[in-house]
Each structure stands twice: as structure tokens, then as C-alpha cells.
Amino acid sequence: MLRVLAVDDEKPLLEELLYLLRADPRVRSAEGASDATGALRRVTRALESGPDGPEGIDVVFLDIHMAGLTGLDIARLLAGFARPPLIVFVTAHEGFAVHAFDLKAVDYVLKPVRPERLAEAVRRACERLGRTGEAPPAPPAAAAGRGPEQIPVELGGVTRFVAIDDIAHVEAQGDYARLHTDEGSHLVRIPLSTLEERWAERGFVRIHRRHLVALSRIEELRLDAGTTTVRVGSAELQVSRRHARELRDLLMRRATH
């Protein structure tokens, strides 16, 4: 079960969030803080008591727009702690989803908070920590400890979370990257080089300065008149000369295993 801290400088919203959190059977305790100073002081006390101590905090539910330090500032400070708690952003603003991803937030919940949406954030936090509390067991596909399983994308003013395992390939578009899935594509403001570094352990490989591909999604490798291409679903993508040999070796090893 989770020990949580909710942070919001608007008292009615903080009380409502605490009410919803305390009503969840997977939450063992829920405390509130109305500013950055109180939040950082409380988390410091939790760290001093140890991860299993009576003062421990597992997850911080953070508003973003607050007087003084913002929720993003607090999250950056907490990331420097020895054993930082997980972060869930709770905000009325949709435009910070990419920053939340950069800070490895567990979830990004929009205000007004719906109980079922908050329950999903609690589930994801339990899943990340390998706990189930009194909730149904988490699906086996989401392994705890592997980092974010989803990436936030914005479409028509709505923030959605796309499973990384559903992404077949990524295309660079300046400072943005277009994520291609079987259902369509999504544009995110993250450079391709950043995704290449973060998703290497998930089986994504760079095949061109413009393309990052999930190795498991490559259906065909073709060499024609000195040009190498791969087929990923309905897309045919060019492989640069400098990546061609490494890609062939990776595919051969994968086929052998």
C-alpha cells in the first residue's frame, strides 16, 4: 500500500485530492502540503526515517502552477535526492506533458480530477513499485523498474498516453519526433537522439539520421543497387550506409536466438 503526499497551494483542491486519495484502498496514508517548502521538508523527513520508516513517502502528487517554486521545480529537486519518491503531476494545464516525461513522472492527471482517472494513477504507482495493495493484480506486461512504459502525447487539447511497445518506428522532424503506431502517428517535442538513448534497452535502433525503429517490428531487410531498406508494417524506410552492417548483424543475431 502507498504512502502519499499531495501538494497544491489551493486549499479546496488539496482537500479534494486528499479525500479521493484516502478513499482508495491501495493508499495507506495521505498527507498534504500547500507549498514547496512544506513538501520538501516532509520528503526530507521521510528520507531520514528510511524507506520502511514510519515517516516514509512513496509517491508525491504535485500541482504544477504554484506560488514560488512550481511543481516542475519541486520534481527536479526531488530527483536529486538519494531515494526520490515517485511523482504524479496533477494540473489544470495540458502543455507540460513532455516536461513530465522528461522528469520520469509516473502519470499526468488533468484537473478537474476524476476519481477513476486518479485511481488509474494510483494503479500505475503501485505497478511501478511492485505493489498491488487491495487492487486487482497489475497486468504482467508492465514490468516494474523498467522506467516509463508510456509516453504522453497531445491531440486536440487532450493528453493521451501511448504505450512504447505499440510504437513501430520514430521519424525525426526537426526538434520534434513523430511516433508511428499501427493506429496512426503522434508528434512529440523530443529530439530523436533523446529517444534513441532512452529506448535502447527497449530494442529501438537507429537506422538513419531520421529514423529510429523497433527491432522486433522489422519484417524485411532489402539490399537493392547498393541501397538498404527495411519494411516496418506498411512503411519502407531507408537505412544509412553507416548503420547498414550493424543492423544486419543485429537482425541475424535476433533470428539465431
Rank of each mutant, 00 (worst) to 15 (best):
residue 152 P to K: 00
residue 235 A to N: 06
residue 208 H to M: 03
residue 202 R to I: 09
residue 214 A to L: 12
residue 231 R to W: 03
residue 134 E to Y: 08
residue 4 V to P: 14
residue 175 D to R: 10
residue 151 I to R: 03
residue 84 P to K: 00
residue 230 V to H: 00
residue 250 L to M: 11
residue 147 G to P: 15
residue 195 L to T: 07
residue 19 Y to N: 14
residue 151 I to Q: 00
residue 64 I to H: 01
residue 174 G to D: 07
residue 74 I to C: 11
residue 31 E to C: 12
residue 240 S to R: 01
residue 148 P to D: 15
residue 121 A to N: 09
residue 148 P to Q: 13
residue 106 V to A: 01
residue 46 A to C: 12
residue 167 I to E: 02
residue 127 E to K: 03
residue 145 G to H: 01
residue 202 R to Y: 03
residue 147 G to L: 02
residue 114 R to N: 15
residue 237 L to Y: 01
residue 75 A to V: 07
residue 132 T to R: 09
residue 174 G to T: 08
residue 223 L to F: 12
residue 182 D to M: 02
residue 47 L to T: 10
residue 51 P to M: 06
residue 227 T to I: 11
residue 197 E to F: 05
residue 257 H to G: 13
residue 33 A to R: 05
residue 82 A to C: 13
residue 140 P to R: 06
residue 103 L to Q: 06
residue 245 R to N: 15
residue 232 V to H: 01
residue 254 R to V: 08
residue 85 P to A: 02
residue 242 R to L: 12
residue 33 A to D: 11
residue 202 R to V: 10
residue 37 T to S: 13
residue 74 I to N: 05
residue 99 H to T: 14
residue 44 T to E: 15
residue 141 A to R: 07
residue 223 L to M: 14
residue 60 V to E: 00
residue 65 H to Y: 11
residue 51 P to N: 07
residue 99 H to M: 10
residue 36 A to E: 01
residue 188 V to P: 09
residue 37 T to H: 13
residue 87 I to G: 10
residue 23 A to D: 12
residue 237 L to T: 06
residue 114 R to M: 15
residue 156 G to V: 07
residue 121 A to T: 09
residue 216 S to A: 11
residue 1 M to T: 12
residue 31 E to D: 14
residue 201 E to W: 02
residue 120 E to M: 06
residue 209 R to A: 14
residue 236 E to T: 12
residue 73 D to Y: 01
residue 69 L to H: 09
residue 26 R to I: 05
residue 91 T to I: 01
residue 35 D to Y: 00
residue 29 S to Y: 04
residue 194 T to K: 09
residue 27 V to N: 02
residue 239 V to Q: 04
residue 124 R to V: 05
residue 41 R to Y: 07
residue 17 L to D: 04
residue 139 P to D: 14
residue 243 H to D: 14
residue 221 L to T: 03
residue 194 T to Y: 02
residue 204 F to R: 04
residue 176 Y to T: 11
residue 104 K to V: 11
residue 28 R to M: 14
residue 4 V to A: 06
residue 220 E to A: 10
residue 55 E to D: 15
residue 241 R to C: 11
residue 53 G to K: 04
residue 50 G to C: 08
residue 7 V to S: 05
residue 195 L to Q: 06
residue 55 E to P: 15
residue 188 V to M: 00
residue 200 A to S: 14
residue 171 E to S: 13
residue 146 R to C: 15
residue 209 R to C: 12
